[in-house]
Design a binder for these strands. Structure first.
Lengths: 225, 225
DNA sequence: TTTAAAATAATTGTATACAATTATAAAGTT
DNA sequence: AACTTTATAATTGTATACAATTATTTTAAA
């Protein structure tokens, strides 16, 4: 048999899915904008078959909507939806830290501690993109430790939508410093294996970013119909 | 223009999706069983195109899995997954009652009260199917009142999986009587607009059915690989 | 001019054909 | 006989063709 690992093939569908997701998150496809399959397929230089499958995934992810007549459009942005998403996310992140506490090892704690250090460093450099990346890594590392596949699956589903809003938000240095404090607190409770407070703190942390997200969204809001 | 409402066309894809979901929930397609597109398409008398789209929905719903080589199989059943699902559901149901309390009217309260009466009646008749139906209606009515589209969307997604386990479980009369008590309590707190206790009670109610579900699943478990 | 009806065009939904990949069987080698 | 290698078959992934539906334009009537 062949030595090298089988390069798990990337399908045209997956490429289209990721590309479109990116385009929607970046706003290159605007909220509310109608989608014509033929046209979009030509633009991506693929056929309609994998494109339709990609669009269907995006539909289930909540990034595009399908109206009764079958026509699709980029999902509008709404404050109501942002609120709903963040409350759900806060609960899921709560579930996930709680499970993570059951499984966490010293190696994991070291890694999370390291991530917080990196986070601080990025803040001192006012490098917002890096701040965002390390913050994300902190959370995602906890996802992995939790071993809760289902919750993680839902969290990633939510993240597709959250990323749309995250992109619009530009944090202040004050916000990021507050954020690093919260990460520290969460880690503290994880180390203590104090589930109640870890969950509590995590929920507060997520909901804290909600108000900020709402502000940035207000001016972009589109009506849903 | 035409008078009558446009009969929103049902697509082959949707029919296939619902049919397959039913078959999986009923166990007609067994956990772990491999799926061959061509064969299944012939059986359903449709082409592979809409079948593939239906299968993709089922994949995202967690009812089928796709392995690295593209082959699909009916998702196995596992205790770990049941646990994860119920914890997530309990949180989502908590979110939803909390929101429902903000919107609830006297009419809604009357309806929920009525459903509990029907539930009691079904219990006295030991009609388990009807018990199940009214219990479901009680929860789904709260979904609607909440107005939380996102949470409801996730709940329905979970329900596809939960229904697989629900079907295996056969409750005792004792269980159902306990259940009706819990419904009453939940409604009580809703009427009082006591969010904290309503959420608490709802979570307990959902998690209460977890242990029962676990028992029934234990003998059906298949290993995931 | 406005409204309704009919015809045309554009778009989505499904079936089929083909290409690419993966699994299975057969043949060859040590 | 066990292991590779090659050839064959089966299966999935993508493109194209066609059918069904929906939207738009044109024509006709009031």
């Amino acid at each position: 048999m062949n030595e090298r690992a089988k390069a798990s093939r990337v399908s045209t569908k997956d490429i289209a899915h990721k590309a479109l997701r990116e385009m929607i998150i970046k706003g290159e496809l605007e909220p509310g904008q109608p989608i014509a399959e033929e046209e979009l397929a030509k633009e991506l230089q693929i056929s309609r078959t994998p494109l339709r499958e990609a669009l269907q995934i995006l539909e289930l992810e909540g990034l595009v909507n399908r109206s009764l007549n079958g026509r699709m459009n980029v999902a509008p942005i709404s404050i109501q939806e942002v609120k709903e998403i963040f409350v759900i996310r806060s609960n899921l992140e709560g579930i996930v830290v709680e499970d993570a506490i059951d499984n966490i090892t010293q190696k994991d704690i070291d890694h999370l501690t390291h991530l917080i250090k990196l986070l601080k460093m990025a803040i001192s450099l006012e490098d917002y993109e890096t701040i965002d990346r390390f913050g994300k890594q902190f959370h995602e590392y906890i996802y992995t430790v939790s071993g809760n596949k289902m919750a993680v699956k839902f969290l990633y589903q939510l993240n597709s939508m959250i990323n749309r809003y995250r992109r619009l938000a530009h944090k202040s240095i004050g916000d990021t410093k507050q954020s690093v404090k919260e990460h520290k607190m969460i880690l503290h409770y994880i180390i203590q294996k104090d589930k109640i407070n870890a969950v509590e703190e995590m929920k507060k942390h997520i909901l804290g970013s909600l108000n900020q997200a709402i502000k940035t969204v207000e001016k972009y809001e589109h009506t849903q119909f």
